[in-house]
Nucleic acid binder design. Structure first.
Lengths: 335, 335
DNA sequence: AAACTTATACTTAATTTGAGCATATGTACG
DNA sequence: CGTACATATGCTCAAATTAAGTATAAGTTT
């Protein structure tokens, strides 16, 4: 216990560090995530990633940028480290004796204009993988039709009473089934719950089940699957982004240089998964000094033309928490 | 570009993953950090850490807990992953051909009662390493006497005008020299700025300077130093904890099972580095349902005896963001 | 008993938030 | 040309929250 600080080089064997990127953009009021098409080995699409090279990469982030530029011909602007994933058996190949992969996950934001489609990378609709997260037109039907009943059954099937209570609390907290307000930031909580209950494809796949089995019967899987644990990384990214919007002006990383206030509002709504009160939204961004008018007018609206605005970068130095601190209105769940 | 997803094992060579822990407690209204005494090789104390063992450790967090228990005989309760550090030359030994260390940093909270002093681990005063962060009795003198002048000089010494402006903005943002309100969460920003300007010991040490040089003349180094980049990890932990207190009831991880409201307030103040308005603080914790009275009375106050309270765990399931959302009053800077 | 320390209840004004009304200014289409 | 419709924008209003007190209670210290 005294010599523990002496030279301790790689006693650890077989660690590989992967750098993974959840690259987000918003086009046509829809949030998108950059995916690479499945290669021969991978049956499902996944996030772009590549191994960290300690000799070539000065920093982790630099390594990530290099990989992404090579794989997708995309130059990343805003990049933020999310989380480092290192649980055993994140990659099923590990069971067969593969090395232990540790992934450092990143969130990156790029503007719509930057999408050059480079071969085998594509923009995937974010809510295709998380259909229960989009409340913009009311409560997602999949919750009432599929998720809620299955979760209730899972709660009831607990063997002991304290266990049942724990399960109920967890369900209520994640999916607000107990009447609480929907918390749009708990994306990861919800995904992990669905995984544990077996409601997402990855769960049964990771458990080694033949996927065609369950799918043959009733539809019990929700949302489209990604390879390995990439959907979990994406859930982490969504939650972080939804939280960050509220206190940092990151939304402007996704906007064109000039935009109308409605375009800005729609972008926030797309990411947040709920609707905003229009007048209050305008009051907020104006009062917080987040934007300034350009004097130009947009003609694209189909109604009264809107003024074009631009982001006021100076706001970062003026206010402690500049961001779109707006309450997301989420229509009450039916029933 | 098409085969990039095929088997790509460790082309990366010489990566070692370290797990580091910033273990925080509060005793006698002072925040403390657990440090391990310098061994022969390390000239300064540092955070407890150990290598990640992919064969033995099921998860990263489990690996961290195992290391800490082994090194300090401390069982960790609340643990949260902070950030993964991988910049080149974080450890000066790397220049001499050592392996590239990547550290996954964690924040852990333990209660005062849990401190068993196990041999060569000690509790260090948190503000000894960051004297400019404690505003509880007004603006720290070190800012006006040392930091502000040095930063101003650094701003003025910029060669180009845009460069000077960038420096000024950065200084104003981090240390609120431009009249803005002090933001107690920007701990990392401030440390990194001081590092870059050369005001912390680690900067000149990492640059290879003989430390006795500078110290011989005027005192230009602020705060006590830690080994390698552990002070940076600690800064990250402080910032995260200060932020988290406001929206999650993590403060109770540091409190005894029952406590008076003033004890609770002092603990929050100790971590936040500022004073709170007493009456509003009580109204807040009561109104938020964070605590409930035990019916018992504390006799230790030296004034009117206070009622003892306990944390209401249920609050987590009731409110979206339970936490001590209180504006930290920071006395205005002198001058 | 007087001075001091801490606890706790209550007041008040300013600010922020949530929701909506009213009106302006354009397009689409009969 | 006129009516319906869509969007933009200014403004009001009540409720809730926040910041900063005053007032009083209930102990300890000297």
């Amino acid at each position: 216990m005294t010599t523990r600080h002496s030279e301790r080089t790689s006693t650890a064997s077989g660690v590989v560090i992967d750098l993974s990127a959840a690259i987000v953009t918003v086009t046509d009021e829809e949030p998108k995530i950059l995916l690479v098409r499945p290669a021969d080995m991978a049956p499902r699409p996944g996030l772009p990633f590549g191994p960290f090279d300690p000799t070539g990469h000065r920093t982790l982030e630099e390594g990530l940028r290099a990989w992404v530029e090579e794989q997708t011909a995309l130059h990343l602007g805003y990049v933020e480290q999310l989380y480092t994933f290192g649980d055993r058996f994140r990659d099923p190949k590990e069971r067969a004796g593969g090395p232990r992969p540790v992934s450092v996950g990143y969130l990156a934001l790029v503007r719509q204009t930057a999408l050059k489609d480079a071969g085998d990378s594509i923009w995937g609709d974010w809510y295709r993988y998380f259909p229960w997260e989009d409340w913009r037109s009311g409560a997602p039907t999949i919750i009432d039709s599929l998720i809620a009943p299955a979760l209730t059954e899972w709660v009831d099937s607990a063997t002991s009473k304290p266990d049942r209570n724990r399960r109920r609390e967890r369900v209520n907290l994640a999916f607000s089934l107990g009447g609480a307000a929907w918390d749009n930031e708990r994306v990861l909580d919800r995904y992990e719950l669905l995984y544990e209950v077996g409601l997402v494809f990855e769960a049964s796949f990771d458990a080694g089940a033949d996927p065609s089995d369950k799918l043959a019967g009733t539809q019990t899987h929700t949302g489209a699957a990604l390879t390995k644990d990439h959907r979990r990384i994406l859930a982490t990214a969504m939650g972080r982004l939804r939280a960050k919007i509220k206190y940092r002006p990151v939304i402007f990383e996704l906007m064109a240089p000039t935009f109308t206030l409605l375009q800005l509002q729609r972008a926030v709504e797309a990411l947040s998964g709920g609707r905003l009160h229009k007048q209050n939204f305008r009051r907020l961004v104006a009062h917080e000094g987040l934007v300034e008018p350009t004097g130009h007018i947009s003609g694209q609206t189909g109604g009264r033309p809107a003024e074009l605005f631009r982001f006021r970068r100076e706001v970062v130095h003026e206010r402690p928490a500049p961001g779109v601190r707006v309450a997301v209105q989420v229509s009450k769940r039916a029933g």
